[in-house]
Structures are given as C-alpha cells and as structure tokens.
Design a protein around this nucleic acid. Structure first.
Lengths: 160, 160
DNA sequence: GAAGATTGAGAGCTCAATCTTT
DNA sequence: AAAGATTGAGCTCTCAATCTTC
C-alpha cells in the first residue's frame, strides 16, 4: 500500500470548520498515521503491505479461500484496475493463485495458497499488536483521546 | 489528492480480527469513501483536491496567511517531498505564493493569495456540505450507524 | 554535521479504453 | 448492450539523494 503521513500531524481546520468537520479532520489524521504504522509493521514482519494483508484476509474469510476479482477489489477498497494489479503482486509472491470460474468464463477467482495462509497467520497478530500500539499512543494525546475512547467503546456496545 | 475507494466497500476482517480491529476496518472504509467524496466535491466546485484544500486551510488559519514548508507538510499529513510538489501545484494555480524567510534563509513560506482565499471561501461550504451528505449516508447504514453516531456525538462533548 | 527544501526514481492508485464472455 | 478483467496513461505519494544555509 505504501501509506501517507509519516510525520506526526496535528489536525487542522479548527478555526474555519464546524465542530463535526474538525472531528473529521482529527479522524483523518489518526486514520492515516495508524494505517501507515500498520503498513510498516506488516512490511517488517512478513514483507507485505496493508493492501495485500486485506486481500489475503478477504480470501481467507471466504468459502474455499477464494474470491472473485471484483469482490476482492471492493473488499479492499480499490478500483477494479488496482485490484487486477494487486493480484499480480500477490501471485508473484506466491500468496495467491488464479482460478478460472467454471460457470462464467469471464470470472476469475483469486485463491489464497498454503503459503498465503501461513503468512496471514503471522500477519494477523502483528496487525493487531501494531493497532493496539497506535491506538494507545493516540489515547495519551489529549487532542485525540476522546476520539479513541469512543472508538474503543464501540465493539462492546455492538457488533460492527 | 485523488482518492481511493470509489466502490462502496464493506468492512472485512470480522471473522479473524478482534472487535477493535473490526471497528478499525469499518472506520477505514468510512474514512476512505468519505474523503473520496470530499475530494470529488471540491474538484467539482472549485477544481482543487482535498490535499490542496487542506493546504489552503492551513495557510488561511496561520498568522499573515503564511506557513513554512515543513509545517504545511505536517498539517496536510504528507512528507516534505510531497509538500514541495504540492506547493508547486498551488502556485501554478495562483492560489499561493512563495516568500523567503528573512531570518533563516533556508526557510520558505507559502502564503495564500487573494485568489486563494476566494477559492477557499467557496471550498469550505462545499466541503462541509459534502461531509454532511457522506455522514448521513453512512448513518442510515446499520453497519456503520454506531460509528457515525459516536463520531457525531464528539464535538458536543468536547473540543477536539 | 544538522535542518529545510527540492529533485530523481519507483510504487500504487484512478480513469478510460479494450478485450472476452454473457 | 452489459459485465468482468486487464492494460495504458497520468497523477500523487514515498524514500533517498542532493543542495543550501545554519
């Protein structure tokens, strides 16, 4: 993925923007920095980026470990074109393989390989750990503490 | 900026990820889609991207309407190198101008122009409106409703 | 040598065009 | 004609190297 915002970045827009827009600004900041840290952690631990991680996760959670191209792109949050190239990268790394769809010959499945599952098994704890670290860091920053608090309160209140 | 996630994208990771990580996944989805909509709205209304908007905002909120390169990059959430190129684009569009720093000749100020302020005055309401629209859309989606609710509750509880 | 800004190389993304299959 | 996947062109970003000034 190779993500933005390496610099610690303070939210802007508190003067000219409404309260909600200012919260959004803060959220963008937290989001970008955190995802950048997740990306780096994944690269460090298993040499994949955040996009690749999300793609593997989508495959692993699907029946038979396979997902169609358009579903994959949607799950990861990129366009069809980007999805196509993402799968090329994954295949080149031996993490997934292509399978043709029997009933609709336009369709292509991307299936996670055994190696892909092994990498994912390493990646998930690394991801979780890095996420906790990032959120903890923001939780001690008074500008972001309320935001983090309310995020952390969510999973207890309801399944998302 | 030219932002990701044009496709409506459902959060993944609900099986293999912890509750907090799943919330994070949902948040990433909301964040990416919303920023993409903000970016498109800004382009439509005043032909600037989200990055340019944030840069103009940072200038406008600073004393004398000027900000140093490194501050600008940090405020927008990009690296120094990207900031340098961003300012080139802004200058080319007549939205900002460079000023040398008198006391530290390494430093360069980026100052918002009159035209830049005019554009920003158009951009702010467009941004606010697009943000409300995007949040409203997510608020009616049961997967994201609790997330949006807790975001919207924030500015009332405390200044961020 | 360190700090601020710029530049070159490379990665990933978007959009639009294309090709195949339905 | 429409849908799924890929490819070409272009943009913005990162990282690392460089240049200037402190």
């Amino acid at each position: 993925m190779t993500i933005q915002t390496p610099t610690g970045h303070t939210a802007i827009g508190t003067e000219r923007l409404s309260g909600e827009a200012a919260v959004w600004s803060a959220l963008r900041s937290v989001q970008a920095q955190t995802d950048a840290q997740l990306d780096r952690a994944l690269h460090r631990v298993c040499s994949i980026g955040l996009t690749e991680f999300l793609a593997l996760l989508a495959c692993a959670e699907a029946p038979d470990g396979e997902v169609r191209m358009n579903e994959l792109s949607e799950a990861v949050g990129i366009t069809q074109g980007s999805g196509s190239r993402l799968v090329v990268r994954l295949e080149r790394a031996g993490l997934t393989e292509r399978r043709m769809c029997e009933y609709d010959r336009r369709g292509v499945y991307t299936a996670i390989t055994v190696h892909g599952r092994n990498v994912l098994d390493q990646a998930v704890p690394a991801y979780e750990h890095a996420l906790q670290q990032a959120l903890n860091r923001f939780a001690t920053d008074e500008r972001f503490a309320p935001l983090i608090q309310s995020l952390r309160a969510l999973p207890d209140r309801q399944e998302v």
